[in-house]
């Protein structure tokens, strides 16, 4: 399948006001349809600002942003927002419905989705995030992790072209996080859209196709997870880290064990160790 650029940042610089420092400094990158890109970086490095620029909550002072080739500006922003689904860092900032099911319905109503289809999607998405029992609950009466689950259901329901999850699973337990990300990625396999996850969770990064590393408002690196994780020391210097397997692999190498590649998960590392074991 041919991949088309869906999101293009061209030399984008941004600051929150004239007197404030630039928080994005000449940022350029491209994200394709059907791609899962993780954006990582230290606190305050500009990740959420990038997300808000993509859906036109903010506009850059320099450079331009294109979504499906269309420039994001005051004119195009209403059209573009229909294509972009976003879960904010704090889900309380986005609940609008009086009940969980109203909340999931809201985004679909705005996009003119027919009633029968809406009902179907409410059922499907709440089931997918494990919140079917809470349809009639008021969102502010949910636990922290339940709020995040509902916020994710609400964006999945609108079936956007670009789905941005800004630390949307930070309050979930590791299992819950895994389940939700599996759900999202299986939807990514079925439909064409771009998935952008902003995250500090090292396990989540592993699953992405590509990683953009931000540092002080600039793109510090852009590579596949496996390649990113070979730069342990450099990552640590900019406030980041690598997952458990990468740390263990590094320690094993220190003990002279010649691992053939940077392992991404337990399975890969065990396989490589097993191969070495058979060879001796």
């Amino acid at each position: 399948m041919e991949n088309k650029p869906l999101i293009q940042f061209k030399n984008v610089s941004f600051r929150y006001n004239d007197k404030a420092p630039w928080v994005l400094d000449n940022v350029s990158f491209t994200i394709e349809e059907d791609e899962w890109v993780a954006i990582i970086g230290h606190n305050g490095s500009g990740k959420s600002t990038i997300a808000k620029l993509i859906n036109g909550l903010l506009f850059p002072q320099k450079g331009e942003i294109l979504i499906s080739g269309k420039k994001v500006d005051e004119e195009s922003v209403w059209e573009i927002r229909k294509e972009v689904g976003m879960v904010f860092q704090n889900p309380d900032n986005q609940f609008v419905g009086a009940t969980v099911q109203d909340d999931v319905a809201f985004g679909m109503e705005n996009r003119g989705i027919p009633r029968e289809e809406m009902i179907k999607r409410i059922d499907e998405t709440l089931k997918a995030v494990g919140m079917s029992d809470y349809r009639l609950t008021e969102p502010h009466r949910l636990s922290g992790g339940q709020k995040q689950r509902v916020a994710i259901a609400s964006v999945l329901a609108i079936s956007p072209k670009v789905l941005i999850l800004d630390e949307a699973t930070a309050m979930l337990d590791p299992n819950g996080r895994k389940e939700i990300m599996q759900t999202v990625s299986s939807i990514l396999d079925e439909r064409n859209f771009a998935l952008i996850t902003i995250t500090h969770d090292l396990e989540e990064i592993v699953q992405a196709d590509r990683v953009i590393v931000m540092n002080n408002g600039q793109v510090w690196d852009e590579a596949k997870p496996r390649d990113i994780f070979t730069k342990k020391e450099a990552l640590r210097e900019i406030g980041l880290d690598v997952p458990f397997v990468a740390i263990l692999a590094d320690e094993l190498k220190q003990y002279g064990i010649p691992l053939p590649k940077e392992p991404l998960n337990h399975g890969e590392l065990l396989e490589d160790l097993w191969t070495l074991h058979l060879r001796t």
């Binding site: 320690e251 094993l252 064990i257």
Partner: peptide
């Protein structure tokens, strides 16, 4: 603990879990 359990199963070893660091675990594996 997950990794250690899987390792012990695959290699028929019984390295115990005793709050070891990655470094200490690497040493046992070595």
């Amino acid at each position: 603990v997950q990794f250690l359990t899987a390792f012990n199963q695959k290699f028929h070893t019984s390295i115990p879990f005793q709050k070891q660091s990655e470094k200490e675990l690497a040493r046992s594996i070595q």
